[in-house]
């Protein structure tokens, strides 16, 4: 079933938390709500879950207006940032809770719980209590609990933010793989752009309660529409119009019309080509990362970061020449 949201609007005592949000989640789609803290993504998730009311707009699931359906009747699954596993129930009881509520037959519950525990690769922990599990394990149990009721929509609220780096990487893969296998439409909230890029079919990038851009990871990375997206998703060098006019006048052709400050030029570090001809850029700093090197340059007065393979041939404080690779760089709205 498809989830569609049109012009959703939410205020908290005068403060506008969500402003004209319109989005869709299709069957089997993995959508990430990406944005910095306070952008409203968790609020939006909670509204979708039914835990929060909204002040305007329409929200539909497969044609049914969700306003009339209470949270407990929506049949969604929600995994909280802090897992919120019931502390007085065992893993088995936690996972089976939703089914118990639906008064499913006991035998069926056991079978289903066992299947799920296999799915999350923790079949032996059925009788443990949450406080006896590690963070990663609790995370997986929380996911299993949400999946147990075969939800029509899976909602994840920053599920990986409390885990350490290695476990996080593992879990990213596992969640994505699980979702694809089960085919459940999923919305995940995260502030980590790397997570969004690796896991999502579609990213909804948000800032200050508004949607900045909706697109595939590739679209957001290669074709950012706004300065914020260019800067938030990956790293960008942002160059003002006046500077472009002076130093890269050929780029002005592709500039959309408008006032001086309306648009800026964004170019990715790997899209800048450096050679040791003379002119224009002074090396300020060099970082060697093994497969990559990151070089910070002062380019006609602007600080830019260039990324290149291997180890650069030049030394610090030398003057080098920088160009933008063919077909790269875009004008982005400010």
């Amino acid at each position: 079933m498809k989830l569609s949201i049109e012009n959703l609007y939410k205020t908290f005592s005068g403060f506008v938390a969500l402003d004209r949000i319109s989005m869709e989640v299709g069957e089997n789609e993995f959508v990430c709500l990406l944005g910095p803290s306070g952008c409203g993504k968790t609020t939006l998730l909670r509204i979708i879950a039914g835990l929060l009311d909204f002040d305007g707009g329409v929200m539909r699931l497969g044609g049914n207006d969700l306003v009339e359906i209470a949270a407990r009747d929506r049949g969604f699954g929600l995994v909280f940032q802090s897992y919120s596993l019931f502390p007085n129930m065992t893993v088995k009881e936690n996972v089976g809770y939703g089914l118990k509520v639906q008064k499913v037959d006991k035998k069926e519950i056991s079978e289903r719980v066992a299947t799920l525990l296999e799915l999350i690769k923790l079949p032996d922990l059925a009788d443990r209590y949450p406080h006896q599990l590690s963070g990663g394990q609790q995370q997986r149990v929380a996911i299993a609990r949400a999946l147990a009721v075969e939800p029509t929509l899976l909602l994840l609220d920053e599920p990986l933010s409390a885990l350490d780096a290695r476990v996080r990487a593992e879990m990213r893969f596992e969640i994505r793989e699980m979702q694809q296998r089960l085919g459940i439409p999923t919305i995940m909230v995260t502030h980590d752009q790397e997570e969004a890029l690796t896991m999502a079919d579609k990213i909804i990038c948000m800032k200050d309660g508004r949607i900045e851009q909706i697109g595939t990871p590739r679209e957001l990375y290669a074709e950012p529409a706004t300065r914020f997206v260019a800067d938030f998703v990956g790293v960008s060098n942002i160059l003002p119009t006046a500077w472009i006019r002076k130093n890269l006048p050929q780029m002005m052709d592709s500039r959309p019309g408008g006032k001086e400050g309306d648009f800026e030029f964004a170019v990715r570090p790997e899209q800048l080509v450096v050679d040791d001809q003379k002119g224009g850029a002074e090396i300020k700093d060099m970082q060697y990362l093994g497969n990559l090197s990151r070089v910070t340059l002062d380019w006609y007065g602007e600080d830019v970061v260039v990324e290149m393979q291997g180890y650069p041939k030049f030394t610090e404080a030398s003057s080098i020449h920088v160009t933008v690779a063919d077909g790269c760089g875009r004008w982005v709205k400010v």
Binding site: L51, R72, L78, R145
Partner: peptide
């Protein structure tokens, strides 16, 4: 409140939430 939200999403009625969360805690 988060336990209650989790139970709510899982379909538990207010009574069930009372018996499964409030009382045990």
């Amino acid at each position: 409140a988060r336990y209650y939200e989790a139970a709510e999403i899982l379909g538990a009625s207010k009574w069930k939430q009372f018996f499964d969360i409030t009382l045990p805690n």
